[in-house]
């Protein structure tokens, strides 16, 4: 089995596990834990990998099936709970990937984030999505494009304020070109898999 397939399966399991936990949560406690109450805030930092999934449509001049390698990602995220379990905030991420010809792709999305949180002690879970813009630069030239991501995370409680765990997000980047360059329009997707530390305050 290819490494990329193993990563994808692990990520899907990570994403699905919170749903089981959600059922247990309903039975366990009806109270909202302090960290997910309205007015709470979180800051999260994450470091991990970014797996390129696809770039579509395929280019007729392409000669290599895979031209982009697994990259590294890092990010910072702030969230404010506008209601119990529901947060709004913003994310600032960065990702570096190398191409087969040795160039570097840098993706730096800045986005608004909305999430739903729940818990099953000592774990807490989140599922959310982002909408925003991203800078993409390939060895000096680049584009500013729309950006969206969808995913979630599972975190283990270290103490009253700190949780640590993993998260996975599907990044979708429509690279839109206009006018005579409309033929350069492509849609790219990545899978971010990160370890993350969440601070509640």
């Amino acid at each position: 089995m290819k490494p990329r397939s193993i990563v994808i399966i692990c990520v899907l399991m990570t994403l699905v596990s919170p749903l089981w936990a959600q059922n247990n949560e309903a039975e366990a406690s009806k109270t909202v834990i302090e960290t997910q109450r309205q007015g709470s805030q979180t800051i999260a930092i994450s470091v991990g990998g970014n797996v390129p999934l696809f770039i579509l449509p395929k280019d007729p001049d392409a000669t290599e099936p895979v031209t982009l390698g697994v990259g590294a990602s890092f990010g910072l995220q702030y969230q404010y709970f506008i209601a119990n379990h529901i947060s709004l905030g913003g994310s600032l991420y960065g990702s570096f990937s190398s191409t087969i010809a040795g160039q570097s792709l840098f993706v730096a999305p800045i986005s608004a984030h909305a999430a739903y949180w729940w818990d099953a002690a000592p774990m807490e879970y989140t599922a959310g999505m982002d909408l925003g813009m991203t800078v993409m630069r390939l060895s000096g030239d680049g584009m500013l494009t729309p950006f969206a991501k969808l995913g979630g995370g599972a975190y283990y409680k270290i103490d009253e304020a700190w949780y640590i765990g993993g998260q996975s997000y599907f990044w979708f980047i429509p690279e839109l070109h206009t006018g005579s360059n409309a033929g350069l329009t492509r849609y790219g997707a990545f899978l971010e898999v990160s370890v993350s530390a969440v601070y509640h305050f």
């Binding site: 770039i55 001049d61 010809a101 792709l105 390939l138 680049g142 584009m143 360059n181 492509r186």
Partner: peptide, 22 residues
Amino acid sequence: ALLAGCNNAFGVFHEIQTEKPQ
């Protein structure tokens, strides 16, 4: 500044798709 650094004639994903290993 970010907008100024953009080049509508440069397709980032197109460039990546058509790369050849060196």
